[in-house]
Structure formats: structure tokens, C-alpha cells
Design a protein around this nucleic acid. Structure first.
Lengths: 99, 99
DNA sequence: CTTGTATTTAGATATTTTTCTAAATATCAT
DNA sequence: ATGATATTTAGAAAAATATCTAAATACAAG
């Protein structure tokens, strides 16, 4: 939601690795934790920040909680960065035309 | 350079605002500081992190130090995010063709 | 070479973040 | 209901970050 929670969430290497793991499909908390050496409690904290930023969605499946990527928000983050590249004083929002 | 210093640099709202200011052109440290309420010393710390991440370039001009955007690195950051969206198991690196 | 202006560096403090262990909650299987 | 598994929450300690004031450096102009 806020770009602050979004960029905060992206700032930690563990969280970026979690996102990378989720590229190839949903994983539950246990499967994700198998890829790290930190405790499940610490990972749960990272999950919370990723959820706050809406970078991941969760779904309970029995005793497991399944995490999946929210690619829309990743796209939003990329757009914010691209917007930083363009000069602030552009006159129109038109699509540029070849001449 | 490292994606760690890059995302760390982008995580702070003051630093993102500095980048936003630089969209419309180079500014020296004093001009930038006029846009904030924090001290110049604190801003200098932020400049250091932006430089480490190579998000900005500097050039001394007399007693002034001029900061400008390095859009290449912003583009790199956007690319890293876009890459997180694509499935990890894609078979080729070919440009997709319309059929 | 001294004075003034711009900026950075050093060192200290306050806040935030990451991580841990222990305990709590939720679900499943018996 | 009881016991086992999966995950989260609470609370504390350690590490990292942002900010400040004061001092240092770099340059420009007399």
C-alpha cells in the first residue's frame, strides 16, 4: 500500500530471497523455512512485513499456511522506480509518438 | 553495485525524495538541503548511502558539490523487481514473438 | 594567509530492525 | 479430549540506522 512499507520490505535480503523462492510457485511456511538457517519465528516476522507491503498473499490449507507472490505490487514497485527516471516536468501524459 | 546497497538506499523516504528532486536536474548539496528540515550533516550521510549504491554521481564545482541521478542503476533496480515476477524455470532467454 | 561559505566527518544518542527462546494458537489424527 | 505438527505471537537482547552537535576539510575571495 504505502511505498514506504513496500521499499522497507524489499530492503532485507532474506525477504528478497523469499520472494525469489515464490517465483516458481506457492510454498508453505515450513517449505520456505527449510531454505533458511534462521528460526521459524524470525521468518514469521519477515512474512508479516511482506504481507503488510502486500507483496505476498496467504491462504490457510489445513495446518499449513501457503504463501504466494503478489506480482501486481512488484510491478508497482518497478513502476515507482521507472517514474524516478523520467524528468518531473514532462508536459503531457500522452504516449510519445515517433515523428 | 550490490543489490543490497541498492535496496537499502531505496528504503529510506528521505533518500527517495532526494532522487525525486534530482529527476529534473542536478542540484548541489545546499540546494537539496533547502528542501529538508534535517541537518546538512544528516543529509550528507544520506548522500553517502546513495553514492555507495551508485544511485547518484557527484562532481565538485568550486565549493559546491553537485549531485545528479544515475538512471542506469535505477533501471537496474526496476529490472531486478521485474525479474522477481517471472517464473524461475523459464526455458529460454529469447524475446517472445507474436504468432 | 585569513576569513567566509559549503560540505563532510567524528562521535554520541535515540530509534528501528533483526533475531532469539519460550509460550500461545490452530489444525489434524487418534 | 489428547497428543503431534505447523505457525504465529510475546518479550528480550543484539545489531543496524538516522539524527544531532561540534569539529574538520576544501575552496574562494579578499
Amino acid at each position: 500500500m504505502s511505498s514506504q512499507s513496500l521499499f522497507k520490505a524489499l530492503a532485507d535480503p532474506t525477504r528478497r530471497e523469499i520472494l525469489r523462492l515464490l517465483r516458481s510457485g506457492s510454498m508453505d511456511a515450513g517449505e520456505i523455512s527449510a531454505e533458511f538457517t534462521i528460526t521459524k519465528a524470525s521468518l514469521s516476522h519477515h512474512f508479516n512485513l511482506l504481507k503488510q507491503a502486500e507483496l505476498v498473499r496467504t491462504e490457510r490449507r489445513g495446518q499449513h499456511i501457503v504463501y504466494s507472490l503478489n506480482t501486481t505490487v512488484l510491478q508497482d514497485a518497478a513502476s515507482i522506480l521507472i517514474d524516478l527516471i523520467n524528468p518531473a516536468d514532462k508536459e503531457t501524459t500522452d504516449v510519445p509518438q515517433d515523428r
